[in-house]
Design a protein around this nucleic acid. Structure first.
Lengths: 236, 236
DNA sequence: GTGAGTGCGAGAGCAGTGCTCTCGTTCCTC
DNA sequence: GAGGAACGAGAGCACTGCTCTCGCACTCAC
């Protein structure tokens, strides 16, 4: 019992309990079968309810999915934050490698969760606002790393051949508030590296590397090393 | 026996006709609603059959999906091949930009088809052998471009800091048969750029760039330019 | 303490799905 | 022309998300 908490009514306590029981079952189903096979009725059976009762807790299957999406973003975000935080602050290249490796490791350990958040969007599903904060956690770790590397003089900038103008320049201006001190051309490369990281993980997970690369783990390290240099990080 | 001959009997001709009618309806449904909402019964209704009759032509929904997957790969592959072929052979950097832009343009024009082949794999679905040839068409265009650039001396190689060894070295040895003349470190970067291209397109299409980049088309060009330089292509 | 009102679970039901099986009909082959 | 294969229709099974109604139990205001 969690009697320490402000004792809401007994009914509210039971409601919270049952809600998390449903979520647990949903998590298990997602991990085992994937989001497409996630059946509200099956979850209801597992927690010993009839399907209509679940609707007292989640107004629709999509709302359940939203909870799982937030869950997945937070799981990946926490994993990356923790692993990155254990890496020596001054070793910026190593911090980059840690971020990449942790994303890959988490994705392999939770393929369906990964597919849920980085695969094809569920049709007709519109991500609510509550998902955007968890979704940015990994990106923020990467941004902070670049800020630190820049401040420490460990980030070399190769100016772009052509300066961005117009709408893109405005985007980068806005992003400059987040990328404190990082030059514009590096920001473009940072976004590219960010997408490349997930592109690489998705290619491995979704089978595009089949019959191309067998030593996927070793390849991933090599690719991340190249991408780290590409964004301007000096080896350490 | 399956003859590669023109339709022998009248019945065979009708069969081929109805098969492609079903496929047309399926294509329309896929384009309109996405693969998850692809209903065999709805397709049957559209072609004026009862659902069980469709099973005379496609043994299961997955087989229908497979046909659509092959379709999508071929559509993208053909678009890229044609666009790239219209680009002057000696302009290697421009050929690279054409490949990237065509992938993106096709993906935006056919989001559900793109999601079908580059999004999360359909659960329980195992891609049959017939899909792998169409799936490689875009990659082969990219490989040929790099071979040409290398032969023309338009591809600078930055040797990798650490030479790949073990299993990855064996992968690259095997790939060297395809990447005629291209150095190993460039091959790694080529694979990286390949994944980065799709990572960038997927990020845009699946909404990861929301609230980050608004000038997506302009950003895409900038990113592809950086990636072209990264893989060693000289500007032209 | 009690009455009113609300939260909740069960059950039935609707419209839809993929897929199977049976049953006549139609077409093709021998 | 006969035998058999191909085919379309229909019924049916087991499932899905979701809605609605019906009682019971809990909670809160008076």
């Amino acid at each position: 019992m969690m009697g320490a908490m402000p004792p809401a009514t007994a009914r509210a306590r039971v409601r919270a309990e049952i809600t998390s029981e449903i979520l647990d079952a949903a998590r298990r189903h997602l991990a085992a079968e994937g989001s497409a096979a996630l059946s509200l009725r099956a979850i209801a059976r597992e927690v010993g309810m009839v399907s209509s009762a679940v609707y007292r807790y989640f107004p629709s299957r999509d709302d359940l999915l939203t909870a799982l999406i937030v869950d997945a973003y937070n799981g990946l975000g926490a994993a990356v934050e923790q692993a990155e935080h254990r890496t020596p602050r001054g070793r910026h290249f190593r911090r980059w490698m840690t971020i990449g490796r942790t994303v890959r490791t988490w994705a392999i350990a939770h393929p369906h969760e990964y597919a849920l958040i980085y695969g094809s969007p569920v049709p007709g599903y519109q991500a609510p606002v509550t998902t955007i904060a968890p979704a940015t956690r990994v990106a923020l770790v990467l941004v902070q790393l670049l800020i630190d590397a820049q401040a420490a003089g460990h980030l070399t900038d190769v100016p772009a051949a052509r300066l961005p103008s117009g709408a893109l320049a405005r985007d980068l201006d806005r992003l400059a508030d987040v990328f404190t001190g990082v030059p514009e051309s590096t920001m473009v490369r940072a976004l590219t590296v960010w997408a490349a990281l997930y592109g690489t993980v998705s290619f491995e997970l979704f089978g595009q590397f089949n019959n191309v690369i067998a030593a996927t783990s070793q390849y991933f390290d090599a690719a991340m090393t190249e991408l780290g240099a590409f964004v301007g990080l000096l080896p350490d």
